[in-house]
Amino acid sequence: MTAALAARDLVVGYRRGRRARTVVLDGVSLTLAPGQFACLIGPNGSGKSTLLRTCSGLQPPLHGELLLAGKDLRRLTRLDVARRVAAVLTDRHDTGRLTGRDLVGLGRYPYTGWFGRLEGDDDRVVAGALEAVAATHLAHRVVAELSDGERQRVMIARALAQQPSLLILDEPAAFLDVTARVELVALLRELTREHGLAVVLATHDLELALRSADTVWVLDAEHRLATGLPEDIAAGGALGRAFPTGSWAFDPVEWRFVFCGTVRGVATVAGDSLHATLARRILEREGFVVNPPDVGPGVQLAIEVLEPPHAAPTVIARHAGGVETHRALQPLADLARRVAADARPGETPR
């Protein structure tokens, strides 16, 4: 099957004047097959947007080969490129009185004639694109009055109306709330599975990217690119290189950032009920090593959580000052902060 996107030894960057050029990424090699969902992650300034602009044909590569659905980008006209790649950006502009249908119709630009009139097939494609993103009911609404999530759906439908083989989204979730963000990713996955579209999503949401992508592209601050299965990426060191932090590290098992800074003490938490897990999170946040393999005598806090089926949980905390019993997590958090403040910071690495 022809890859929707294939790059070989691509050099990405900007031309400044006749000779001068600023190289952002060097030696990029990538492929993305139809029906694949790729997430591009990396810190700000790592070159995500530049890479995506190049893949969308908005910015010519400085060197190397870029194939869109099997054709060399350099041999394609602007309109040919627009028929192969469509993009959804963070840009938000006042779209005036355009309705959802008008806006999606603009996606027919590479296909329509001189005046941009929609004819026969165009109407069917527009209706199909709206249906693919479950936005048929937004066709007659004025886009400027839609919510951010609805608006983003219509923008994706507009991209689909270009009938591309590759859809590129650059931080489309920037304005969206959590629910809309998760729904957006679900929609994108559906588009890859149902319609065989190849999708690249640039996002800052690391966990969502790892959980939903078929393949993850990680760029680090040194402009190195690592690609692979999310699980392989999580197990390898790419995420650590891309997101280096002093006191937090990405946990390859839990797929979240965990505290690994100065250790304030050692604690134990008994049980694995919901509230026991939450208590553990609180202690970790305050700098405690929780349930280390060999619990010595140096335990500052011992927590036991009783979670009876139809009653509020009970938190029993034993520490040097005595035993406390609480029916909520907040007092535990306060206690953990007090104990951590009294403890002498140790140098034990986690």
Partner: peptide, 23 residues
């Protein structure tokens, strides 16, 4: 009158217009 198609595409901003094939 001959430029209406491009002007319509520009309603979404220059970057979007470029992704739709506008020079």
């Amino acid at each position: 009158a001959a430029g209406v198609k491009q002007l319509n595409a520009l309603l979404l901003g220059e970057r979007y217009a470029a992704t739709m094939g506008v020079d």
